[in-house]
Structure formats: C-alpha cells, structure tokens
C-alpha cells in the first residue's frame, strides 16, 4: 500500500482547524439562541466537533510518531513537487478547468445541448478518446438520447 503519513499529517491539521471553527460557531449559536445547553441547536454539532478534534489529534499524533514533524513537511513538499510536474496531474488539472468552465460558465448561459456538446467534444479530445469525427457523432448520440429518454419519457427538466 502507498505510504501517506505526510498526508495524514496535513489532513489532521486541516480537520483540527475545521473542528475548532465549528466549536466556536456552536458556542455562538448557544449564546445567540439562549436557554439551556441541552436544548440549544448548537449542542450536538459542538459534541461532534469536539470528537472530530480529538480523533484528528490522534491521527496527527500518529503521523508524528511514525514520521516526525520535519519529515512530514519534507515528504509533503516532495509529493507536491512531483504532483505539479507529473503529466497525469496536468491532464487532470486541464480536465478540471474544462469541467469548471462547463459547470460555472456554460451551463448557466447556454442551452443544455450546446454547453454539453462543447464539454464532451473538448473532454474526449483531451483524453484522446477517439477522432474528432467520432467524438462529434458520439456527442450527438448522447445529447439526443438524454433529451429523448429523460425529457420525453421521464419528463425530467434538464439544466
């Protein structure tokens, strides 16, 4: 199995911070709403956040015991360096950018068939799936099927 102690180290710190923010928020909820703590909307989340803080601390302690603070940082920096240089991560990042453009820019502005066609053709081209002609044909088939099956048969609205 892949070693990932340095990642446990980073995630445990992130989760400890998240739980601290939630504990403070829950305390604010208790003060805002008033009344007994057992009836407060912040009671259960506070309890859960405390437990998350505790378990994250256990994971943090374990990662330090196995690797030490310095080595965890060095390992994480090394991993990050490799990640930014690898071809796969660059391809994934490009896929992510196309996905973000489709979700945040194309879907709210263009009709579904147009935004989806642009997205599918570009993604299949980046993934080097098939030739451009084939990807256009596949896209037309998929978009047509989605319209036919979901909007006509199931009466489901599309984005």
């Amino acid at each position: 199995m892949e070693k990932h102690t340095h990642f446990d180290f980073i995630t445990s710190i992130a989760l400890m911070l998240l739980s601290l923010v939630m504990i403070v928020d829950c305390y604010r909820i208790w003060i805002d709403v008033g009344g007994e703590i057992y009836a407060s909307p912040g009671m259960l989340p506070m309890l859960l956040a405390i437990l998350l803080l505790f378990t994250s601390f256990l994971l943090f302690k374990r990662s330090i015991r196995l690797n030490g603070i310095g080595k965890n940082f060095t390992d994480f920096t090394a991993w990050f360096g490799c990640f930014t240089k690898s071809k796969l991560s660059r391809e994934m990042l490009l896929g992510g950018v196309i996905l973000a453009i489709y979700t945040f820019a194309l879907v709210p502005r263009l009709p579904f068939w147009m935004s989806t066609s642009i997205f599918m053709i570009s993604l299949m081209t980046i993934l080097k799936a098939v030739s451009i002609v084939k990807s256009v044909l596949i896209t037309a088939l998929v978009v047509g099927s989605i319209y036919g099956v979901f909007q006509m048969i199931f009466h489901v609205p599309l984005p």
Partner: peptide, 23 residues
C-alpha cells in the same frame, strides 16, 4: 473509459439538477 467518463459525468450533473432544478 475515455468515452464513458464524459457521458457519466453529464448524467451525474443532469441528475443532481433534476430534483430541485437548482444550479
């Protein structure tokens, strides 16, 4: 998989939108 992934992705987004019609 290069063909399947974009198709399933579109289905995922349509599915999540369909319930409340909310982007």
């Amino acid at each position: 998989k290069e063909i399947l992934i974009p198709v399933i992705f579109i289905l995922s987004l349509c599915g999540s939108y369909a319930m409340r019609q909310n982007v």
